[in-house]
Amino acid sequence: MKIPEQVQRLAIVVGVLLAVVLIGRFVLLPSRLVARELHQTATIEREVVKPVRYAGSTACADCHDDVVVKKAKGYHKGLACEGCHGPAVKHAEDPGAVKPAAPRDRKFCPVCHAYDPARPTGFPQINVTAHNPLKPCITCHNAHDPVPPRTPRDCAACHGQIERTKAVSSHALLACTTCHATPEQHKRSPRRATPSKPETREFCGGCHAADAPLKTGAIKDAPKVDLGTHGRSYPCWQCHYPHLPEGRS
């Protein structure tokens, strides 16, 4: 049987093509160009040179040994610096140029401490809406050594209601003794020695008057009113219960 001519020609073309490809693949191309190993090494090397962004806690110790020492003694000893401050390799290399953020916001700490039933039992959790609202956590807890602050319980023993009310008010951070000079004897025989009570509008004005000295923390944070016109000349506690001043009557 004779093979048709067009098939013969086609076979030649196919044969030549095949030869070219095979020669190209096995003779002309050096074997290292098609080796899978090489692609893999290239990938690995690309992976290896990727930039490191988290320096690791040991990197901070050189310059912030005070913080490191403080933290190592507290409840937060297991926490990485950069877990709170974010990746800080750039800062560690050039502290002047790049500064890591410090999470001072009240929203931050609850990522770990908000009550969540799925968290392991025993892990310290708080009810964020009830636990000293309004205040950033760091006004009471040091972020690097967050011992729960010891509030003087000596007034709460007998004035529990007032203590609890004040604890959730905007005056939470003011000690009772800021407003009541309390003789030591009051705690033993309360009725014989009574503490003082603020008597003048000017007392509250010490922190709240528009012209109050803006020096220390508590005074700086206090919202200001014009003592001359605000609430006419009534005592402040006519309208503001001093232990819960935002609840106006």
Binding site: L29, P30, L33, V34, H39, E45
Partner: peptide
């Protein structure tokens, strides 16, 4: 097709 991947390795 074939040299493309290889060139990469050469570049490396």
């Amino acid at each position: 097709f074939f040299p493309a991947g290889g060139l990469l390795a050469m570049a490396r």
